[in-house]
Nucleic acid binder design. Structure first.
Lengths: 350, 350
DNA sequence: ATTAGCACTCGACCATAGAGAGTGCTAAAG
DNA sequence: CTTTAGCACTCTCTATGGTCGAGTGCTAAT
């Protein structure tokens, strides 16, 4: 966090002007342009001096001697801290309309209780509107409660496991069982396990099951043990996918007008585990978080900026929603977007 | 189909040389280059004359006066018919290795009987290797037999429907029921319906159900009718998704070195229903089919060439597997690939 | 402290020239 | 009659150089 007093008022204004101009239009910004366009009340020469100072302390840089200035990561950082601080809340007509529409949409989907569809709908929507990459992580196992697990016989050695949670997660998987069995036995065991564990978080169920297996080893027959293993296998599936969308939209940004940039971006977002790891760091932090370019601890993602927030049910933070974009991101807009969509999603969990 | 006798032997050789050179390297091909590189036994002047003839009958074209020639769609068509005819079977080490690997892979997946994973694995594999877009259509309802449909109570007004087919399709969906019910009733009805219909094709079940509803209208209670509706809803889901992958890979091709081309491509393959409609035309045709650029009846896809074949179980053609790429496609390689992968997939259905 | 003025720098743009690749045509050779 | 060597011609591509304009830093005046 850069102290906000490092700059006097004039410098702040100039810095913000440069950044906002550059965000609108990715061209180096000159002193003359700032003086005219933003009418700050000083001449271009004065602004020139201020800009030279801003370059000295590392907030701006020059692509070449006779070009204007562009923001550095440090400059963006100051700007973001500043707008997060003053809660700059410019009313955005388009954003409001979008939120109303998205809200209706999510509620309809929620009626059918399909959480996956809801998440992919939400990432699609935010990435279409912003041209940035939308990401949502699924509710973590601590926040997901078991409703029921059904096992349906598929063949002599195969069973279909279907996991239902109270949050609307439904997962199915065919699992191989190396012993033959009849459906009635399965039913008895699952009934028992369901009665025992329903209502607990997946996390809890998982640890209860491992305890049980280690204590009661060999006490039950093979099928029981195997069923518990199936339970565990199904539970572990519940929170593994991450919803990412918007690569197609990103090519609309001038920042990605070049094929090599697209390749880099597509490579970065293919690494879903990296993104998941990063976003999980945010899960216990309140409010919107911003990471700018090189601030990112994960080097593969250092050409991206990330704006993230959490969604929650009544008690606790469940998962993370984020926008990934170029450093030259419209942070103000992205922050509003993420903040509001996180709230919409949270609402569906009440 | 262009008569293969329209060209004398020399012309064929020249045409094939030009096309193969252009496929390898997307630069207009000159007469001198053909004479040297392909050592056909005539001088560049002779080849120049032949190429002029080939241009006259529309097999080659010139980007501008002093450039070499590039193939037209008609030229590609002749070439493709030619290699399909002579069964040009150049042994391709890389392809063979790939097929062995893919085969093991698919068999492992098949052990878990997860047909969706198998299809997406297969499209991923072929698009990674070729840099073209891999597509597979799911087995059509005429070729898919009902194993079982389970209905699990989710809440007072919601039920989770799980459809299993003998081919390994598993589909789940939450469905809203506008009346309250108890699980026991559901179980009775589904048991009855499953006994009645299991083993029939989805197609057949669908029509039996509609007959039944229209004949016995009002004869049963509300829940039965509603259950039948749920059955129908679940059945209709079984064959709607199409597996497409490889947009990421396509940007490695020089044909898509330009952003606008990428946009066009990604727009084209977003229209999955168009692709599905097109591929469904192939389903009753034996052998590998090729469509080149403007031959495509669907105008949105006229910048693509398509190589397609069918996969089948013992009795009949089930679905289609295809590669979509630029007109400048390596047809020989694509044909081998599609042909062989279709056979691999067919094998998993025996 | 601010600003007007000015010399300077550097990329963007444009026109021009020359090299190179490839053609079509003609005339000679087989 | 077919093939080929030779040649003039066409067109793209690249390099070059010159101009323009935007923007800077510095200095001197306000």
């Amino acid at each position: 966090m850069i102290s906000k007093d490092i700059l006097d008022d004039r410098s702040k204004k100039v810095l913000c002007s440069v950044i906002e101009s550059y965000i609108r239009n990715p061209e180096p910004v000159g002193s003359r342009f700032v003086a005219r366009r933003y009418a700050l009340g000083f001449s271009s020469a004065t602004i020139r001096n201020i800009m030279a100072d801003l370059e000295d302390i590392g907030f701006l840089s020059q692509p070449h001697t006779s070009a204007g200035r562009i923001p550095t990561d440090k400059g963006y950082r100051f700007y973001v801290d500043y707008i997060l601080d003053v809660h700059e809340t410019g009313y955005d007509e388009e954003l409001e309309q979008f939120l109303v529409k998205l809200n209706n949409n999510l509620e309809n989907i929620r009626r059918d209780f399909n959480i996956n569809t809801m998440f992919s709908e939400a990432t699609d929507a935010i990435s279409t509107l912003t041209n940035y990459i939308g990401v949502i992580t699924p509710p973590r196992p601590q926040c997901t409660t078991l409703k029921r697990l059904e096992l349906i016989r598929y063949s002599t050695n195969q069973v279909v496991a279907i996991l239902l949670t109270n949050e609307g997660i439904i997962i199915n998987k065919i699992i191989y069982i190396p012993l033959s069995y009849v459906q009635d036995d399965l039913d008895k065991i699952t009934d028992y396990l369901n009665n025992e564990y329903a209502g607990n978080t997946l996390d809890k169920v998982m640890s209860l099951l491992t305890d049980r297996v280690s204590i009661e080893k060999d006490q039950y027959n093979n099928l029981v043990n195997k069923t518990i293993r199936i339970y565990e296998e199904a539970l572990s599936l519940a929170t593994e996918d991450i919803f990412v969308s918007g690569l197609y939209d990103a090519i609309n940004l001038p920042d990605y007008s070049d094929i090599s940039k697209i390749k880099e971006l597509s490579k970065a977002i293919k690494e879903k585990h990296l993104i998941l790891r990063l976003l999980n760091e945010f899960i216990d932090i309140e409010g919107v978080q911003v990471i700018i370019g090189n601030e990112n601890p994960i080097s593969e993602l250092q050409n991206l900026s990330i704006v993230a927030s959490t969604y929650k049910d009544k008690q606790r933070n469940m998962g993370v929603i984020a926008l990934l974009g170029p450093r030259r991101m419209d942070y103000s807009r992205a922050i509003h977007m993420v903040d509001n969509v996180a709230k919409l999603i949270s609402r569906t969990f009440d």
